[in-house]
Amino acid sequence: MAVRDLIQRVFQCDFSVMDSYMPEQRNMSKIFMFSHSRALCSPPACPLTPRGRLSNQTQCFRSCDARGLQKVEEACASYSHVVLKEVRFFELESLYPLLRDPALDLRIVHLVRDPRAVVRSKEQSAASFVRDNAIVLEQRNVPGGEVQYQSIQEICRSHIRINERAVLKPPPFLKGRYKMVRFEDVAFNPLREINAIYDFVGLQMTPELEDWIVTVTHGKGKGSARDAFDITSRNAKAVTQAWRKALPFSKVKKIQDACKGAMSLLGYRTVDSEKEQKNLDVDLLVPQEPFKFDWEAGTEEAPRR
């Protein structure tokens, strides 16, 4: 699989594999959101920010571009941990070769979110997700009015497949190397949840990073569509609830019907009326972490073989 091989090479800090995916002028600035990376805003990639300090993304964007990706490789190789964010894996089996690779101690943090909030978020940046929806739906010819519902249904099904494989039927090499995290848990208790992630991957939180996390999750407002891909200070709790005011109940009901089984697995309560949806005093998050799923209880199909 080309994507898996690309990921493996990047984990090994070999960025020559990016040649097929980037413009001919392969500057560091061509890497999506490079200025949000502390590693690429500090030595050896860039002298702007002292090593280990938090960087300023605006200053980094202006000052830290470099021709070629050699400095990116040097920065990557200088750290003990390499982190990749991937947004569209629909099953774990394709990653098995990486989990078996003795050169990689791969850990998987599976971030999930209330599907109603996912739909609302994608609507805010609809133009950016046209290609994403096509990938999710495997280029199928779907009526325009059904695209978002069939897309979120496929995403929900993937959550079930991944969680079942990792939690209920894990192969020996996967045990202890998968962690599912709910976006809402991070929003409501960011320090606890992020410290748990750091423990899971063998990192230690710093006081400076804790202060930054508190600042970025305790801002004002929910952010605008213009900020969709920016890391800005927002009210994280308000972000998790924004869909309850923004989406009509008719749409919420269709999302719930499409994702009923996944919502049960992930710990998201459904709403039965517009009044219940709009009442923010009604808690829709099941507090305990989900641990199993009964295929007979949900509407999703069984895992693909």
Rank of each mutant, 00 (worst) to 15 (best):
D5I: 02
Q8D: 11
C13L: 11
D14T: 00
S16N: 13
V17L: 08
N27Y: 06
K30P: 01
F32C: 04
R38A: 15
A39P: 04
S42C: 03
A45S: 15
P50V: 07
R53T: 02
L54F: 00
S55I: 08
Q57C: 08
Q59T: 04
F61S: 13
C64F: 03
C64A: 13
G68W: 00
Y79T: 04
Y79K: 03
S80M: 00
H81Q: 06
R88S: 13
F89W: 07
E91F: 06
P97F: 10
R100M: 07
R107P: 04
I108C: 11
V109Y: 01
V109T: 11
P115F: 03
V118P: 04
R120I: 08
R120Q: 15
K122N: 14
Q124L: 04
Q124T: 08
Q124W: 01
F129V: 01
F129K: 01
D132N: 13
I152Q: 09
I155F: 05
H159R: 07
I162P: 02
N163I: 10
E164V: 12
L168I: 12
K169C: 07
L174I: 12
K175L: 14
R177F: 06
Y178R: 09
K179C: 15
F183Q: 07
D185Y: 10
V186H: 09
V186P: 06
R192P: 02
I197Q: 08
D199W: 03
D199N: 12
V201Q: 04
V201L: 03
G202H: 10
D211M: 07
V216P: 00
K220F: 02
G221W: 02
G221F: 05
G223E: 01
D227A: 15
F229G: 01
N235Q: 06
K237V: 13
A238Y: 04
A242Y: 01
W243S: 03
R244P: 06
K245Q: 15
Q256C: 11
G261I: 09
S264G: 15
G267E: 01
Y268R: 04
D272I: 00
E274W: 04
E274I: 03
N279P: 01
N279E: 04
L280T: 14
D281S: 06
V282C: 05
V282K: 11
L284W: 05
K292A: 13
F293Y: 15
W295E: 11
T299W: 03
E301V: 14
A302W: 05
R304T: 11
